[in-house]
Each structure stands twice: as structure tokens, then as C-alpha cells.
């Protein structure tokens, strides 16, 4: 495989973009988890009203949605890596990758519905 200075320019991304996105989304998720932990700690003792009111402001809805989108993208890259490492037959791998995308897209839509019901 011609890499380095002799790499072929084929319009592929050579995985660099996904590599960076996986790190970026990881940082987003750490920041969101810390934010959520602080808000939960501040709202203690947690009953239904205290818990639900965390997710009522539009700012928190947006932050949570950004975290969910980051989670989906992060999980997609990670699962794609797993399929690429362990599943050699192209057909099976593509089916698994498609199933992963549908799985995550479904979860994302559900998360939006949950958030905007509160």
C-alpha cells in the first residue's frame, strides 16, 4: 500500500478524519458528563421534579442532544473499527456496519423524542 510521500491521491480520507472525530467526540462526552454530574450533585436530593427540571431548559436540551450526536458518531467509529478488525468477509462486514448505523440512528431519534417530551 503506497503511503507516506508516495501515497496515491484517491480522494479517500485514510481514516484521519474519523480518528480526529473520535477524539473530539470523546472530549465532548467527558465535558458533558462532568456538567451533568455537577448539575445532579447540585439538585440533590434527586426526586422526579429535581431530575426532570435538569432537562427542561432549552440550553440543557441542546447540550444533551449534542452529547447524544457525539455518542452516536463516537460509537459508530468504534464499532466500525471492531468490525474491520474481526470480520473479514466483505458482505458480512457491510451488513454489520449498516446494522450499526441503523441501530445508532434509531437510538438518536428516540433520544430526541425523550428529551423534547420533558
Amino acid at each position: 500500500m503506497p503511503i507516506g510521500p508516495r501515497r496515491l491521491v484517491v480522494g479517500a480520507h485514510y481514516g484521519l478524519r474519523d480518528w480526529i472525530v473520535q477524539r473530539g467526540t470523546a472530549v465532548v462526552l467527558v465535558i458533558y458528563l462532568v456538567l451533568l454530574a455537577v448539575m445532579v450533585a447540585a439538585a440533590r436530593p434527586i426526586d422526579y421534579d429535581a431530575w426532570a427540571s435538569i432537562f427542561v431548559p432549552i440550553g440543557m436540551k441542546i447540550a444533551t442532544l449534542i452529547a447524544f450526536v457525539s455518542l452516536a458518531y463516537h460509537a459508530w467509529i468504534g464499532m466500525r473499527d471492531i468490525w474491520m478488525d474481526y470480520v473479514r468477509p466483505t458482505g458480512i462486514r457491510l451488513v454489520l456496519q449498516l446494522a450499526t448505523i441503523l441501530w445508532l440512528a434509531g437510538c438518536l431519534v428516540w433520544a430526541v423524542q425523550i428529551l423534547w417530551k420533558v
Partner: peptide
């Protein structure tokens, strides 16, 4: 992978 599977 575990968290991916139990996401729903």
C-alpha cells in the same frame, strides 16, 4: 461494545 449493545 457492551455500552453500544445496551444503548436502547
Amino acid at each position: 461494545a457492551l455500552m453500544f449493545l445496551v444503548l436502547p
